[in-house]
Design a binder for these strands. Structure first.
Lengths: 300, 300
DNA sequence: TATTTGTATTGAATTATAAAAAACTATTGA
DNA sequence: TCAATAGTTTTTTATAATTCAATACAAATA
């Protein structure tokens, strides 16, 4: 009926183990010192000390805290199975939308989502609130949330925004110093692209991952928290839609490999205009692929 | 211990007023029709009908709902003082941070904020969650939230991001068709700039608003939900910092007016390169003004 | 006087619950 | 027969209550 006491439980076992390292009759450090050690507040530490005294592991009177006996297995308390499943909620949520192709204007039930994602309701609400900044979801007048979703307009605006960010990144790469890690990464990517190009007939599915890696390297040059935040969403959306549109998939991927290589060539030649032009062409292709994949799915 | 019944109360008064427009002994429409009218669910409507029957305003039996008497003042129920103050929470929150110069790494207490902003706690939590997308606030390990705030790094990254967006906007303006409203707006702005330039000695404070208007017009050409979302934050931050840094304020503003006019000139001449270069110069000035205002305040 | 402890206050995570929405079933009347 | 309407049940949401934890402050100790 209230918050869990996992914090206390973990701290207790922590302090218990620490007691095990001390000699019988030796003194424990101050409460504040123990706070630091366990990374919790004094309130929790004092609760732990109370429990330790109750178990007869220590004697505790004022600032006198002495070890009475060596702690044993039974002294420690059980820690409830930590549902770490609220870890990468974002990835799993976008994954769900894209994989199951949840249509735009679907009402989202917090109760249902919290069950299926195994996450407390209030956490899900906070998450949805944060997503609303991307215009992906919105509050409904009659309460609850609504998936605005991947409409045609959303895709167009996302693509345009991506182009702006990525062209900026390209411009930055050209100006990167010779010892910047991006050059080694690009050389490596060139090799991987060439290799995949040779076995494209059979391995064309592998391109999606390579595409993600390529754009990640390009964007890694721009150290900007806003860019990073958006890149997460952008790469997921494009990654999935790439995998969807099965029409001419092999041809498309083969063409994209060439486009990537053209960009790498221009970058390594430090030819800014050529790099920008090549990137523009590639981004245009990407956009139309994204739009056509939407057309093939449902709405417009 | 549960949600408020404001919805019911408002709906009731709504339906009551509607009853007032009907003749005695005439029939009310179906429950569903009433739902539509009041914009609530049938559950609420039925509760309203129950209350109306209890008050003797109507007779209700199955689908027979007849007006018995004309409703009077005392029939309506009081609506708790609607705290519309959760309206522009975002503006007020940023306003608070900037105006009182709340330092970076300040722990934010949801309880306290919800009191001072007069907004329910859960709403504030959702708001903070959404702000976390901008990297302005973050969760703390020991619970609660933390204002990451306007550090030097934040200002730099925000400026850079702004430059990327705005240079893109400039490029779009140049390509805008002749009948696009932006041209009339720019002509108007030119006039206002010239006028302010003449009386800059006395009215230099008026520039801040003009600056905001100028950048708004430039960015209005880009129809993109992501850009719009960011522009809100960007304009607020720059607006305030402009007002802060009092050193050489008049000179700075006079110079900025000239920079704006140079941009307008280049745009009207459809000279893309000149416009971009002028914009770049102006954005550089803006950035250094922002940074120096931070230096004058506190940290770095 | 600087730590350390004792105590009180405040805040946050989580749950319980009333209000509202939505889903489902039965009834009515053309 | 079937579309619209009402009755009933189930589910969901918004919000306060509850309990754990953090922090602030006072008293005591060394």
């Amino acid at each position: 009926m209230a918050r869990s006491d996992t914090r206390y439980r973990e701290a207790f076992n922590d302090i218990l183990a620490y007691c095990g390292t001390l000699e019988i009759d030796s003194a424990l450090p101050s409460e504040n010192a123990l706070c630091q050690q366990a990374g919790v507040s004094r309130t929790v530490i004092r609760r732990c000390l109370g429990k330790l005294e109750e178990l007869g592991v220590i004697r505790w009177e004022g600032r006198e805290k002495r070890i009475l006996r060596r702690p044993c297995e039974e002294d420690s308390i059980a820690i409830p199975p930590a549902n770490g499943s609220s870890e990468d909620l974002e990835k799993r949520f976008l994954d769900w939308i894209l994989r199951f192709d949840v249509p735009a204007n679907t009402p989202l039930s917090v109760a249902e989502l919290s069950r299926s994602f195994n996450v407390p309701q209030h956490e899900l609400k906070e998450f949805l609130a944060s997503l609303s900044r991307f215009g992906l979801v919105a509050r409904r007048k009659q309460g609850g949330w609504m998936l605005l979703g991947f409409t045609r307009a959303f895709a167009i605006e996302l693509s345009d925004f991506r182009s702006v960010l990525e062209l900026n990144a390209i411009a930055n790469v050209v100006d990167a110093p010779i010892d910047h890690p991006v050059w080694a990464q690009l050389a490596d990517l060139r090799g991987k692209h060439m290799s995949l190009k040779e076995r494209i007939d059979t391995d064309f599915h592998a391109f999606s991952k390579l595409d993600e890696a390529f754009h990640e390297v390009i964007n890694s040059v721009v150290r900007n928290r806003f860019v990073v935040e958006f890149q997460k969403v952008i790469s997921l959306v494009f990654h999935y839609h790439y995998m969807w549109d099965k029409t001419h998939e092999m041809d498309r991927n083969a063409a994209a490999i060439d486009e990537h290589l053209t960009i790498i060539d221009a970058l390594e030649a430090r030819d800014k205009d050529a790099a920008m032009e090549a990137a523009r062409r590639h981004l245009r292709t990407s956009k139309s692929t994204l739009l056509s994949s939407l057309r093939h799915h449902d709405l417009g």
